[in-house]
């Protein structure tokens, strides 16, 4: 093995070990029982530092841009493989996270090359110290983010007919249209209830067999069905990083034989930065809504 290959491998190995170490520290600082939180720094600061470590080992290799980008991809591939094996992350989660960490790793590589060319050790140490300070500070900060997604469709049926399909419905047979459902993310399949009253239990069953336990907290017939999620499965594919808190269906009689059905969901995220993950959370929640609501529309309009 020539020295060039050794330097490239050192970049991969040291950057990944460094990342594993920092994530371990972060998990230690954040482990207060309950749901594990993945903070902003784990997806931003760690990839930047990983990129800078790679740049340190690759700085004298005169790598062309194509190889630099390719090696950055490889470094991420190793990081994702470690996450799959040691953190038990699901493949879909890793697909979602990879553009984010690729971006910041590339940024780290670029900054690293620029920084290390100056041969200014004080500057190097200062930049790395600031990044680690931000990381520790972020890991120790409180993280709480909740949001709500709302969707509306019009159903050509009166509220009385729509209502019974809103409370519970038979298996959805329609093919999935949403790409994440198609590649294996669990999608909603069926809903059952123990009764048609406030306080009754409700179950939302997903395609992989996972079941959300729900409790009806508002039962205003033909108007409002609101339910709290009381039991949520812990699935490495997404559900480990989001809590669905509450769901709601609102029905509005349009006075012309049609009903406007509004689906609302409240959720709490355990992954940051939210400017990135909330885009995904909204998209997934919206597609869960639409799959259920389009099914309700279909069976109500029969």
């Amino acid at each position: 093995m020539n020295s060039r290959t050794i330097q490239i491998l050192k970049g991969f190995i040291i950057s990944n070990f460094f990342a594993v170490g920092l994530i371990g520290i972060s998990k230690y600082l954040l482990s207060k029982g309950g749901q594990p939180t993945f903070v902003f720094s784990e997806f931003v600061i760690i990839p930047i530092l990983m990129g800078m470590i790679c740049a340190w080992f690759w700085k004298d290799l005169n790598l062309p841009g194509r190889k630099r980008a390719l090696y950055a991809c490889l470094d991420i591939f190793f990081a994702l493989t470690f996450s799959y094996i040691f953190l038990g992350e699901g493949v879909i989660c890793l697909v979602i996270v990879s553009p984010l960490i690729f971006g910041f790793l590339m940024l780290g590589v670029f900054v690293g090359f620029k920084l290390f060319k100056r041969h200014d050790e004080n500057l190097n140490v200062s930049v790395i110290a600031i990044l680690i300070f931000v990381f520790v500070n972020d890991s120790l900060s409180k993280h709480n983010y909740q949001n709500m997604v709302s969707d509306t469709i019009t159903i050509h049926a009166p509220p009385a007919k729509v209502w019974k399909n809103v409370v519970a419905f038979e298996k959805i047979k329609q093919e999935n249209k949403y790409w994440l459902f198609r590649i294996g993310m669990p999608s909603p399949m069926q809903t059952t209830v123990t009764g048609y009253y406030k306080g009754a239990g409700r179950k939302c069953i997903f395609s992989n067999g996972y079941t959300f336990g729900e409790k009806i907290i508002t039962y205003d017939e033909t108007h409002d069905l609101t339910f709290d999620i009381v039991d949520q499965p812990r699935d490495p594919e997404i559900m480990n990083h989001i809590d669905i808190l509450r769901g709601q269906f609102l029905l509005k009689d349009n006075g012309n034989g049609t009903t406007t059905l509004t689906g609302n969901s409240w959720y709490k995220l355990y992954v940051f930065p939210t400017w990135y993950y909330d885009i995904w959370a909204q998209s997934i929640t919206r597609n869960v809504h639409l799959r259920v609501m389009e099914h309700i529309k279909q069976i109500s309009e029969k």
């Binding site: 062309p64 841009g65 980008a69 390719l70 690729f102 971006g103 910041f104 590339m106």
Partner: peptide, 21 residues
């Protein structure tokens, strides 16, 4: 913006790698 540009780079790397040359 850097994140967006790096996504463009990722796309370029897989679709038209010669552009990076």
């Amino acid at each position: 913006p850097y994140l967006f540009d790096s996504q463009l780079m990722l796309w370029t790397l897989f679709v038209r790698p010669q552009i990076l040359d």
